[in-house]
Design a protein around this nucleic acid. Structure first.
Lengths: 121, 121
DNA sequence: TTTATTGTACTATGCGAGTAATACAATAAT
DNA sequence: ATTATTGTATTACTCGCATAGTACAATAAA
């Protein structure tokens, strides 16, 4: 998996989201050391300052801890990771249902839409 | 319904989306004249230039037609409106399922999530 | 102790979004 | 024909994001 910087949203936000996703999926396992700011910046093709800002957000969300000179490590608290995963999923479903509701679709319509979309894959 | 400019995304995009939503919901019925650029800008609390950019997008999407001096009117082609509505709903569901998939949830998990979220409302 | 690596801080620059003020063009209303 | 209203265009300004380059602080490794 590589880095996708497509949106017109701030790059550091997109980087934080994708770093978070990697942690949630276990691509960066609990307790494991994360690549350094400079290395990840090189991978993603962005400025180290931008990646720095993105990675600092991981600590705000308690998904990583940073010791001054030994780099950052993914949290060993798997409960935090699981909770973040469920919350992200819940938010995605809620957003979708909100849009459908705005468009005038009933909850039962929503279920039909989901089933229909599933069949297309 | 008033205007929500919360995101950090370009304001004109958010305005276009909300104008579109009003047309899809019938708040601005087919064939009806839309308020002028200056008036809508005042309502939303944005610069007329920004609203101008947003409303021009409606014509790109064939949801409105603009005659030079008589303002813009909502398209009378209800098929276009219906198609836009279905497409918007489909995209919302697809986005949601994509996120759930990224998090490692199976399609059946996705359905459960939706049903669960529906019960919370 | 020395060195290299790590996170962090700082300043400067370019670019695009949004704002602001104004002017112009076209035409429906009078 | 005149006037007011409409969409459109132009210019200048401010601000935040991203980049670039450099420097500093702390500490694990040698």
């Amino acid at each position: 998996m590589d880095w996708k910087l497509t949106d017109n949203r701030p790059i550091w936000q997109q980087l934080t989201e994708q770093l978070t996703l990697r942690i949630l999926k276990g691509e960066y396992p609990p307790g494991e050391r994360l690549p350094g700011v400079r290395e990840l910046a090189a991978q993603a093709g962005v400025n180290p300052n931008t990646m720095q800002r993105a990675m600092a957000q991981l600590e705000t969300g308690s998904l990583a801890v940073g010791s001054r000179t030994a780099g950052r490590t993914v949290t060993e608290n798997t409960a935090v990771i699981e909770a973040a995963t469920k919350e992200r999923a819940r938010a995605a479903v809620a957003d979708c249902l909100k849009i459908l509701s705005e468009l005038g679709y009933s909850p039962s319509d929503a279920l039909l839409f989901v089933k229909e979309e599933l069949n297309h894959e």
